[in-house]
Each structure stands twice: as structure tokens, then as C-alpha cells.
Amino acid sequence: MTSTPTAPTPVIELTGVSREFRIGTHVVRALDGINLTINHGEMVAIIGPSGSGKSTLMNTLGCLDQPTSGSFVLNGQDVSDLSDNQLAETRSKQLGFVFQSYNLLPRETAISNVELPLKYSGGYSGKDRRSAAQTALDRVGLSERYDHRPMQMSGGEQQRVGIARALVKNPELILADEPTGNLDTKSSAEVIEMLRSLNEDDGKTIVVVTHDPEVAEAMKRIIAFRDGRIVEDRAVSHPIPISAGESEQ
């Protein structure tokens, strides 16, 4: 699918966003006046050295954190000044978050982990929840793993449960902070392929933080961070799908 020449709709608009952390008298500026627009249907890699502010950016985009200054407009709504409750609602409705360490509830089965976001938004019966969770798990190829607990699954499978959980409410935007950071090459490839397919086939907007250049090159746009600033922002003319299994570690 190639992008049509209609006017792009922005999903994310950051204007002069800064985030400071105060530790005693010392101030760390994790984000330093970021201006950034990500449009509907984009697939973006965020790269940069450790401590450059990538996770801070993702937490802001994921409405888990708020900027110290600047404005963040998500799907046309300014979320920089929302209350704690409104932020929770936005997290629940507008986006899905995928974590490096999966962050599944260890005692719950795959299906019940995927159901979790639905439990915190009204209007779903137990049946609705179950069928939505099944659809999401089917989408990530885990039809055989509904009742497995995290401990009974491989890292790649756990991460796919994480993706299913991000997908279950069918949000526009998927954010993934180093989703392959804990995975071997083969599982990484599967996860990235999954994200690519969500972008290509389902039209989701995807933002992925990664340290892996191969993963970055598989995206359509790469933004590089250093010291809380964007130092590079380029389009990838020919995203290279990463090949699975070639360089098994």
C-alpha cells in the first residue's frame, strides 16, 4: 500500500515540549523543546544513545507522563493539561502501549491479560471481552495460546500477547518502547513483522523505540535523539524487512 496524496492527518503534534526532572537541586532536561508531528499511517523508529530521552518521549506520547512545558496534541485534542483521570481515559481509548519487558500480569492467562484494558472501560460484557481478546490474540498468531500463562510462553509469544493487549481496543496509535530489547533475532523479526503488518494492513500509526539499526531500517521514518533533542529526522525510502533466523544468537 502506497500513501495517497491526500492531506495527511496528524496523530501526534508536539510543540516545544520539554520535560525536566528535578533531583534535589539538580535538574535533568530529558526532553528539550521537541517539535514533532507524526501523521496517520506512519511507522516511525526512534533511535538514540542511552539516556537521550527516548523513553521519556514515549511516556509522554503514551499519556503516562506530562510535559513540563510545551503542548502535546493527540488526535486533535490537547492532552498536556489533562487531569489524572482524563489521562487514564485517553490511554485507554486512544493508544496501545507495548513494553520492553512485556509487563503481563504473571498469574493471569494470555486471554485475561489481553482483556485487562477492556475491564477498565465500561460497556463490555464478559462475552464481549472474551471475543475481543480472542480476535486480538488471533491477529498476533496466538490462537493456540489463549489459556497459557506468561511463564508458559516464550519471550516472543509474551511480547505478542503484549501487542494483542495494545490492539484489543483497536486504537489508532501503537507505541512500543524497545519491544525487541529482550528478544532473540528470530522473535525480534516476528515482532517487527507483526508491527509492520499492523501498519501496512490495518493502517495503524506505529512508533517504535529501538537500539537495533536493523529494526530501525525496517520502519518508514527514523528520528534520532541526543540529549533530549531531535538530531536527525529522515524518511526511509525502502524499508528493509528484517530477515528472521539468519543471525541466530
Binding site: 503514551g62 487514564a88 481515559e89 502501549f97 477498565y120
Partner: peptide
């Protein structure tokens, strides 16, 4: 604590 973080991240409010 981590479970609480997970629940909050997927949309749980403080009162939940």
C-alpha cells in the same frame, strides 16, 4: 507495585 503500574498503563484510574 508493578501490577499496579500495568493496570494504570492500560487505563485504570486512581479510583479503580
Amino acid at each position: 507495585t508493578r501490577e499496579i503500574g500495568i493496570r494504570r498503563a492500560v487505563g485504570a484510574k486512581r479510583r479503580d
